[in-house]
Design a protein around this nucleic acid. Structure first.
Lengths: 208, 208
DNA sequence: GAACAGTTTAAACAAGCGTTTAAAATAACG
DNA sequence: CGTTATTTTAAACGCTTGTTTAAACTGTTC
């Protein structure tokens, strides 16, 4: 395996686990078993390495997500919100084929990026992958036409919060569930628990 | 004002804005206009300072929250989930009397603590303030008796995620809402938007 | 006013950070 | 083979981090 991908793989694991700020280049190059200077040689800077880690996933996920959402969006009868959110399941779980622990790594990274770096990742996603968001908002609009754009905005951010926060601490939560309830769950189970929650949340009756 | 509280106030502001890892002691003492060594003299270490910042809020909030929840819990007829979550509003907003921007600062700190420091804050809260959690779980149980303890566990963590994530980026979100929809909102408005979302989420029908 | 505890101060500490350098090793190509 | 081009390496760079030190200062008490 090339030095460049060894760095990317190690960075992904550590970033997901300890955050971007919490991971040093020395930890990354040590885990990847390459020289420290290799990061700056191949990627230029730590910030570019972060972008590369995220891009590898987004380039894999974005087309599948857009396709899956546009199917829901273009079917004749309006979708339910559960159907809209369920459209995420297969694309997300397919990341586990793409890379080991891909699904949970990606979702954890998403959570890290939102809180670690003061909105940098929000900018990155909304500007680099607007198609996903457009399709998503369109699907929600068809499922619940009474929602105003303002309410959709807020509720989608609530949803984002639920998902990325849960995922950024999913390992700890699964451990607790294992200890307290002897529940043996994987990341797919957690996603399937999330769907009814966020669907009901987005579909909640409007406040006066 | 004493050096000790000047440090605490400055630390609170910066921690809420940039996270615990993202804030240096030099930034804190510079904003507080005290000597760098004062932090270690008065608090011993940065970690103890973080605890002190959180404790000041929790000691103010915990009794009010327990009281408010136990009222909901002990009324004759079972509460609705909206009632349960609405029990948070007054105690949370009272933090604005306690300290300027107290509500949003506290909720942002909560969010930071969950993602910044690898579960340290989760341990801190669950061990130091178990009464709040017990009352909360009890209230939810009365409102929705069909929920199993496992489902309550998961859905309360989803709720936690929604709230702390929203709050840790609430300033950015309110800016966007202001720009895109000319919505002029304060932290209380955001909380009132959250209540229907999380209530419906926790109250969602159980998956098979 | 001397003695004392409590507090503040400037300076330094060791350790870790991201990044850069220039030489050594390897690969690619005519 | 000899000559480029590419990649790897060890070492150092300048900077920031949390923490410690010892001297200076402040305020209280006998």
């Amino acid at each position: 395996m090339s030095t460049k991908t060894k760095i990317l793989d190690a960075a992904e694991t550590l970033f997901a686990d300890k955050g971007f700020n919490g991971t040093s280049l020395r930890e990354i190059t040590s885990l990847a078993d390459v020289n420290l200077a290799a990061v700056n040689y191949h990627y230029g800077s730590k910030k570019e390495l972060i972008k590369a880690v995220m891009s590898r996933y987004m380039n894999e996920l974005a087309p599948k997500l857009e396709a899956s959402l546009s199917v829901v969006c273009q079917q004749e009868k309006s979708p339910t919100l559960v159907e809209v959110f369920s459209a995420f399941i297969d694309p997300l779980l397919s990341l586990n084929v793409f890379r080991e622990n891909g699904t949970s790594n990606f979702l954890q990274l998403l959570g890290r990026g939102y809180t670690d770096s003061q909105g940098f990742l929000r900018w990155f996603l909304t500007t680099q992958y607007p198609g996903v968001i457009t399709n998503f908002v369109g699907a929600v609009q068809r499922a619940y036409p009474e929602l105003t754009p303002e309410d959709i905005f807020w509720r989608l951010h609530f949803t984002m919060g639920t998902v990325v926060f849960t995922m950024s601490s999913s390992d700890a939560l699964m451990d607790i569930a294992q200890n307290d309830f002897s529940q043996q769950l994987d990341i797919g189970d957690v996603i399937r628990k999330l769907i009814p929650f966020v669907s009901a949340g987005v579909g909640a009756p409007l406040a006066d």
